[in-house]
Design a protein around this nucleic acid. Structure first.
Lengths: 214, 214
DNA sequence: TAGATTGTTAATCGATTAACAATC
DNA sequence: TAGATTGTTAATCGATTAACAATC
């Protein structure tokens, strides 16, 4: 009930483990050792074992890990075994891209898309009709929503986030290039595309042009 | 010419500094101390000074930092002062979303959008016509391209990345949920949306429901 | 000048890697 | 059983924070 104390560095690596284990599963692999996995993922075996043992002993000495079991356990840690609901606020290209993405594989179902543009009203994306944002309050009265993806233009993001907070939304997946100012009990996960591109830019402009020597 | 040795943790923070300084600039602020900035950004003043001093002394004792100067210097570090070119491979919602995004503010100009779907051919996004991907080789003969954004479906991503590598592309901004296998001299910057959502899921499911005590 | 704040060194903290006893 | 590989402790490494002399 109190502080869990798992470092965020560990958490950030879990989805990647989950992805690799999913691929192994597709390939019909039954077991894998931390060493084998470390080679594929280009990390150390030590790190894999250390990371996993934050959550429990999923392996077996002399054998390694059962792929399906480990995959599913990591899924549970990440909460992917629970069906969760998402709405998308902002039905522009990015909002539509998210709606078309199949997040149901990881337990997320898009149950609503909202915009202010009346020309989009009723247009369906992946079978979900775009609704006007002023119907959101009504919608939330009859639908439990776990996460709101925020894909509105930067200039509206702050105000819309406040609105979402007031309506009781507790988790925002934010795509606007700002830091939202919401209370502590609203969780914000940012996807800052411009920052990612700036990172790329730095690494590109400072790349080594000579032969890699080691 | 040899190893720069700036840690990636530092690099990842620079875009955020850049963004905050840009906002200060818009507000007409002329100077700022590391302490003031640290309060706004919710980091320590020590970290800000330590980070900046990896690149040089941009401040002045007793005064702080000149907002415009620091903003522009960080921009230069990130390579944002140089005009760079980008093409987008995959003209679905996500590709179109990127094309509509105004990255020219950070020095990136989208000069081409490519897809395999003939129904998209000639359709213009932000004034740029979607071209068939088999014309890419021709295009690259007459256009210098710095970065290719990869927004094709997962199943095609690996093959398209190999194609881009063969055509001489040196930097890929990858949106497909896989780790591309390209040679070391091709830079890959990933945007893994599903991993971001899984992170959100973990934090949401493990959030504290009781009152924050400190 | 006196006060403020940087640049930078030293101390602390946390994360990663190495090593190996436990055990399947 | 012998060999393999985990779980876990200890050692190392790197990043963050604190402190303060330098200096504007």
């Amino acid at each position: 009930m109190s502080e869990r104390g798992i470092s965020s560095a560990v958490i950030r690596r879990l989805p990647r483990y989950y992805r690799y284990l999913g691929e192994l599963l597709e390939n019909g692999e039954v077991r894998i050792s931390s060493r084998e996995l470390s080679i594929r993922m280009k990390v150390t075996a030590s790190q894999i074992r250390q990371d996993l043992n934050n959550f429990g002993g999923f392996g077996q000495q002399g054998y390694g890990y059962n792929v399906r079991y480990l995959h599913d356990e990591i899924g549970k840690i990440l909460g992917l075994d629970v069906q969760q609901t998402m709405i998308i606020i902002g039905a522009g290209n990015l909002g539509q891209a998210l709606a078309n993405y199949d997040f149901s594989k990881i337990g997320f179902n898009v149950i609503g898309i909202f915009d202010v543009n009346p020309r989009l009203e009723g247009l369906a994306v992946r079978g979900i009709e775009i609704q006007m944002i002023d119907t959101l309050e009504d919608f939330l009265r009859t639908n439990k929503v776990d996460v709101a993806a925020l894909t509105v233009p930067k200039k509206n993001a702050r105000a819309v986030a406040t609105r979402l907070e007031d309506l009781g939304i507790k988790a925002i997946w934010n795509f606007a290039p700002i830091d939202l100012k919401v209370s502590d009990d609203v969780l914000v996960q940012n996807v800052h595309l411009a920052e990612s591109l700036m990172n790329l830019s730095f690494n590109y402009r400072n790349r080594r042009k000579d032969k890699p020597s080691d």
